[in-house]
Amino acid sequence: MSYMTKSPWVIHYDASSCNGCDIEVLAALTPVYDLERFGIINTGNPKHADVFLVTGSVNEQNRAVVKNIYDQIPNPKVVVAVGICATSGGVFRECYNVAGGIDKIIPVDVYVPGCAARPESIIDGVVTALGILDAKRQAMKEKKSENAGNRGDVV
């Protein structure tokens, strides 16, 4: 990816992580790693966001919260599962209160490995996600012009 035409914003939610990945997500945004140099800003409002970073795995109580945040993010959007817990449940997969990876409730575009995921891997994951975001945006545009064409409108 050579450059981004937009400035994508991320939102982070801790599903049932131990905090290890969460603080690494924050570390990726701060000096030294500085994800913000790609024009990326961490926001607390899902309606501002393009990229959804989830750490930790799904359980009964946060299922609805994760789904709700996902639904509030406008299209196009990408989901990055940060760390092994968000991918599969990781070291906690056998716990009674852990249902498994985030992909059990929402579609995941990029999986970032690690326990805890390193900031370098997180940045790599987000940058990969931006490529997917661009492709999704392109696909939406084409679909829109196609639909418009079918109706005989001027695009």
Binding site: N59, E60, Q61, Y96, N97, A99
Partner: peptide
Amino acid sequence: IRTSVKNP
């Protein structure tokens, strides 16, 4: 603490 199993 809401758990998926009652009184685990």
